[in-house]
Design a protein around this nucleic acid. Structure first.
Lengths: 209, 209
DNA sequence: AGCCATTGACTGACCAGTCAATCTATTCTC
DNA sequence: GAGAATAGATTGACTGGTCAGTCAATGGCT
């Protein structure tokens, strides 16, 4: 008996198993890739029976969908919050970059799965979630528009392109860590956050010339 | 591998069919994705019999490997050539960005396949070709080191991070076009080339402060 | 009369998803 | 509070379809 469950119903135990399966799926997807792994691998990793995966999820796809949406929605909330604040763009972009880098720091496997299996998968999953993904780009694009109106950023740059560039730098740094092409560790994560903002803002800011 | 060099026999027709299969594969992979398509789809698209694919290639994987290596090696050659030239970094990076953007302009399907199915596929293909991919990053990293030594770029930025950032911006712009999130057309391609260099150099250059 | 290109039906393995059976816990009845 | 009834959680063997890769036969060229 786990001492954590304090509610009267057995429903607590139920959601525990669901979580167990999701967490196991992250590890399995990260290790073997979504396509290469079997549903039985997830069940084994979670220490539950094969059929239980289908008790909580309609399909293998839905497991990945759930993982992606859980995390992406947290990020969208963060971006919306930051967007609503009254701060210089530089700080806003730093907050977003920090959040994403910290997400990787905290759970590299999950971020690997999201980037490799969803964000970049133009067919299959990318297609399903394109609307959700697009929303993030649009919010960032909006921040850039505002900075252009305030005169902080040069006006001649198409904001959508700038937003993509910003996100592209971050995602490529994560990819570098995922592939073990870049050195990792807290110190590097901190410097990476600043680098992202420096690079993008440096190129976008209205020069004093 | 390839018997193209063979002169005596009807090798000409042979290599034609091989090319036909590769070109068909690009279209099919781009449309359906590598995992979702069947080898018979490739054969149908090429207008040849199923078995012929296996006459020229050992496996479905080898078809993708061939497509990736063909293109990536052309890019590596370009980068090496540019690297050897005596030009300002800005021009070197512009040449590389231009080449990649033009590659997409010339054959969007092929670039989509390379990015979506290989470059970002940490498991499966990404893993197989990681060495080849890394080489490109290292060459770009080398250019940045040189620019730092010359005093054009700030020294405190880790060159590997800067190289990843540069490549990340480009790849994300292509991804934007692939997903139809960014407007396309010759004019936009031209502006994108400049944007990439502006952003990255703007953030890396030694400030006059 | 031989050699390679080409064909396409076939097979063997694999695996997502189903389902009937079993377990466990909570509530109901007297 | 014993026992029955109900509902949900959990199990894993099984099935049905899919497809990568094989191979024996055929075509075409020199």
């Amino acid at each position: 008996m786990s001492s954590q469950a304090r509610t009267a119903n057995g429903a607590k135990g139920a959601s525990d198993k669901r979580r167990l399966i999701l967490d196991a799926a992250v590890r399995v997807f990260a290790r073997q890739g979504f396509h290469a792994c079997r549903v039985s691998d997830i069940a084994d990793e979670a220490g539950v029976a094969y059929g239980l995966v289908y008790h909580y999820f309609d399909s293998k796809d839905e497991v990945l969908d759930t993982l992606f949406l859980e995390r992406w929605n947290v990020m969208l909330d963060l971006i919306r919050t930051v967007d609503a604040e009254d701060k210089p763009v530089r700080e806003k972009l730093l907050a977003i970059a920090s959040f994403i880098v910290e997400s990787y720091h905290h759970d590299p496997d999950l971020m690997k799965v999201i980037i490799v299996e969803v964000t970049r998968a133009a067919n299959s999953f990318g297609d399903t979630h394109i609307g959700t993904i697009r929303e993030a780009y649009e919010l960032i694009g909006g921040m850039i528009v505002k900075a252009q109106e305030e005169g902080t950023f040069r006006r001649e740059i198409e904001p959508r392109f700038a937003a993509m560039a910003f996100y592209g730098v971050i995602e490529q740094l994560l990819t570098g860590w995922i592939f073990d092409l870049l050195p990792q560790g807290e110190e590097h994560y901190e410097r990476a956050k600043l680098l992202v903002v420096d690079i993008v803002c440096g190129g976008l800011e209205a020069g004093p010339a």
